[in-house]
Design a protein around this nucleic acid. Structure first.
Lengths: 352, 352
DNA sequence: TTGAAAGCGCTAACAC
DNA sequence: GTGTTAGCGCTTTCAA
């Protein structure tokens, strides 16, 4: 292995432009107090020599690392990847987060952390020290983990909490789960449905409650019943099947079901088909998340789209702003979600 | 922003253990010439203080950065992410690459590079200098881009070329496209098919030829025709449709089609259905890649699985070994691919 | 087998 | 406005 030393450093640029190191540093950091003329000269040298600053050296001297660290749940992420069902949460996060980071001269690194282990703090601390990131993106369910948020607050690293409404520390961003649930419920009511079942997500995720709240609120407003129309679930296919079984056994049967994610919606559709129910003729189904499986299912699922890319992008933006001294507003940033209408929803069947 | 200085450094450990910095450094790098007794003492202090070395400082002093950089094609990756069709190449690479990296104390970073731009070299050089990675993973079509491989060779960074059989520089790894194509073709022949069409992938990818070679070799061995049964494609749905149209217009019509990726196979199935052909009754279809869409299609696609995770994992392993002075064998590492049988293939229809 | 000194590339703090 | 100095945390010499 050849010992790699940097070919062209700030020194070379300084020498070439005939200025001090500091002036070059000021130029590359876009600091004030540099005459336009000097700036030009330095920039010319930089381009000529093809100079690029070393992240390591910048971090060493106590300034930024230009690194944003995205923390994901280890177990769940690996399970999704291995299942190969097309769950693209990580991809969408990269799409939004990486591109925005690159645009602002930063880089994004993904790190998997094991929430259930008793040394979460040690694990995160290690990443913090090794990488010294300028910002952290927390994804559910980490966003509401007091152990993690407490640690980050303590360490003084800016952090964004995707899917958390807690504004007591860090930057809070949500994808408007409540509003999206309302949208979906209203869509069903507009189609004439009056008995609309709801399958809840895992209690580990705060958004599970928000989705339920949205459904319940619209149902209440419309004077429709919710009693006996809510079943628990944990986002898994299996739990969706059990919940659907319970809902379809009701008398009268619901004519529409809102499932808290695509997997549970798929389970619902599969079960309905087995029971000889036509979709959407006899039963309409709406899901949350809009992962690729929603497109490929038969019929394609009407789904609430999660604007993950937009949210990650915004998180990066706010994190980098925080580094520049702009303290977050202390309010939850809400990213609008949209309803994608496909073939799994239709008019309510005529009353019998 | 609080100025973040490292809480516990090598100095603290040295002081706590009553040894020199150097000895601590030797311990954390598992170097020889440290008495077991000293080693114990240092390790105790490290655990007690929760010391973690700073990547930046290590890199600064001229040693490793503990970073592996995965270079992906910008345009294609973003298109896949935005399409939300479940293409999980990046996920599988992360699954294999990140986990193996973490296991060996490294971290993996993804970087998107624009191949078509005329400043590829500048772009890659910038990443190299900014990050100083200890190894690079090249994915198709970059693996065979002489501009890129030349640059990396020049810079002295170890690099792995996934999907390239060129052993003149870097580490060459392939997913046995040829063997997989043979497997798929043989499967069809075993089912009684004799007219087996082939839809080729983009010429930009070397693997397109390997897949064709495998098909052609088995067909030749079996004394079956290939003339007029091969159509070009570029991996897109649209190109698959055009190719399928041409193949289905042949007289006699092929009873099976091997498509070089899932998208083109889907296009083939869609077209066949429109033409009133039953799958697999009238036409069997096999695809390459086995992305999630293969599971969700109707019927599910029999597909050649790409062992991306295993390949990425192996690449990381070899890259890190290269850093430790182990020069690569100079031979192409072949990762076996498997055929996943699903519903899109069946016995050939009886001759009419 | 261990330690001391020098320096990696850059920026913060201060001087000019 | 611009330059000088010191030092970040670590590893690489080289000396003991």
């Amino acid at each position: 292995m050849a010992r790699r030393r940097q070919a062209v450093t700030i020194k070379h640029v300084a020498a070439d432009a005939g200025v001090s190191l500091q002036t070059v540093s000021r130029v590359i950091n876009a600091e004030p107090n540099v005459r336009p003329e000097m700036k030009k000269r330095v920039e010319t040298s930089i381009t000529k020599l093809g100079y690029v600053p070393s992240i390591a050296a910048r971090r060493m001297s106590g300034s930024r690392s230009y690194l944003i660290l995205a923390l994901n749940d280890r177990e769940r992420t690996i399970a999704d990847w291995q299942a190969r069902q097309g769950t693209d949460w990580v991809d969408q996060m990269l799409l939004g987060g990486m591109l925005k980071s690159a645009e602002l001269g930063y880089r994004m690194i993904i790190e998997l952390v094991d929430t259930h282990s008793d040394h979460v703090e040690r694990e995160i601390d290690a990443a913090l020290i090794a990488l010294q990131p300028d910002g952290i993106i927390l994804t559910p369910p980490h966003s509401d983990n007091p152990l993690i948020t407490g640690l980050l607050k303590d360490r003084g690293v800016p952090f964004a909490r995707i899917g958390s409404r807690d504004t007591s520390s860090g930057i809070s961003l949500v994808m408007d789960d409540d509003g999206a649930a309302r949208l979906a419920t209203r869509h069903l009511i507009d189609l004439g449905h009056r008995r609309i079942g709801f399958i809840r997500g895992s209690a580990e995720y705060a958004l599970s409650s928000w989705r339920e709240d949205g459904w319940r609120a619209v149902m209440d407003e419309a004077g429709l019943p919710t009693d006996n129309l809510r079943e628990p679930g944990d986002f898994s296919y299996a739990s969706g099947r059990i919940a659907a079984e319970a809902l379809l056994a009701r008398d009268p049967r619901p004519t529409a079901i809102l499932a808290s994610n695509d997997q549970m919606a798929m389970a619902t559709m599969d079960l309905a088909s087995e029971r000889g129910l036509a979709i959407p003729g006899d039963l309409s189904v709406i899901s949350f998340d809009n992962t690729p499986m929603a497109i490929f299912s038969q019929p394609p699922l009407t789904a609430v789209d999660q604007p993950i890319a937009a949210t990650a992008s915004r998180a990066v933006e706010l994190l980098i702003a925080a580094n520049k001294g702009k303290t977050p507003a202390g309010e939850t940033e809400v990213i609008e979600a949209a309803l994608i209408e496909r073939g799994s929803t239709g008019p309510a069947p005529a009353e019998t």
